[in-house]
Design a protein around this nucleic acid. Structure first.
Lengths: 186, 186
DNA sequence: AGCGACGGAGAACGAGCGTTCTCCCTCGGG
DNA sequence: CCCGAGGGAGAACGCTCGTTCTCCGTCGCT
């Protein structure tokens, strides 16, 4: 393979990592698989990421930025604050229906490595914390009680887990309906 | 170690498997660790379970029976059907607060092996299906609309995931409050 | 052209682990 | 008392995989 800029190699490595780690699980993907899928040599991989754990960390971090960006972009299209809250669940339904959807990457990673990798556990907590903060912002914008944010968060998390296990988009609609009732009840 | 009845050896193996698999994750526990913790020799282990995958399967199956049994026993103590529904979330709070709580064993196992082990994936689907059925029964007993069961299920799942990641019992109370509002709204 | 740094391919190393095998002891039945 | 089945301890085997190393080709610079 020709000479390759470091930044490009890094992106290619992360592209391969995301595809393989998310699709097959982290522990069942070897560094050699990453090399094969990315075209980045092992030597280069270890220059960019001193160990597999850091590659996993970088994969989760980049995915977090993109995931929350896509969600916020979608929700932002709604006019009213309550519509933006419900749009979160509409977006979940779109996400669950995507080809290759296999549940929440962070929940899956936590199940796999949360007990053995502090870096992975920290990434998962950071991602879930940021998502919860985002919901908190939407709830505050709507002038609704703060406790609602935690309830919406639990509904979204439950929907992600259940959609992953059952391979269905239905949990998003169930969660949306529950959210709608909670908006009214609050 | 002295001669040991097969049924006893099986229970000891499952005791060790449950403690280790749940506490440290499945892939990071070796068959040799199971032997060390159970006192059951490798030869015996492989007579009882032809492969590690079957030991994992048996661990999840036995835990499922016990978990649902403990939940039902607790909820049964409540008089009214709606109180029994809310008691589910009270029980979750007790569970989350137990020493060594590390999230939902089935969600964790699914994150670890759902993509690579059909037996594990089937156990997880069976367990989650049974739990959802149980909630459906409680909702029907209370004469409430069937759609409520799915919403309660999502709240419970979200609480389990979040309690596991944040090491807190708070999600159970948040979920209980949301459930209470949904009971009234329906 | 000559040289030195860089990087690719892939072998090599070392550890972990699932599974099987060897050796030996024990114990019950004739 | 003798024999054979069963089982325990743990070595051995084979494979995977994270990480490093070796060898060699290439390319920019003088």
């Amino acid at each position: 393979m020709a000479v390759m800029d470091s930044a490009v190699a890094r992106e290619q490595a992360l592209d391969a990592a995301e595809e393989l780690f998310y699709g097959r699980g982290i522990q069942s993907v070897g560094m050699d698989d990453i090399r094969g899928a990315s075209g980045v040599s092992l030597k280069r991989l270890y220059q960019l990421f001193p160990a597999k754990e850091q590659l996993v960390e970088a994969y989760l971090e980049r995915r977090d930025v993109r995931w929350r960006g896509r969600l916020a972009e979608f929700a932002q299209q709604q006019e009213g604050p309550e519509e933006r809250i419900l749009a979160v669940f509409d977006w979940l339904e779109l996400w669950f229906g995507e080809d290759g959807f296999r549940g929440c990457a962070w929940i899956n990673s936590y199940g796999e490595l949360g007990a053995s990798s502090a870096r992975v556990a920290a990434q998962v907590r950071a991602h879930k914390g940021a998502f919860r903060e985002y919901l908190g912002g939407l709830v505050a914008d709507a002038g609704l009680p703060g406790a609602l944010a935690g309830q919406l968060f639990l509904l979204a998390e439950g929907a992600m887990v259940t959609a992953g296990i059952t391979r269905s988009t239905e949990p998003a609609r169930e969660a949306r309906e529950a959210a709608r009732l909670l908006l009214r009840a609050g």
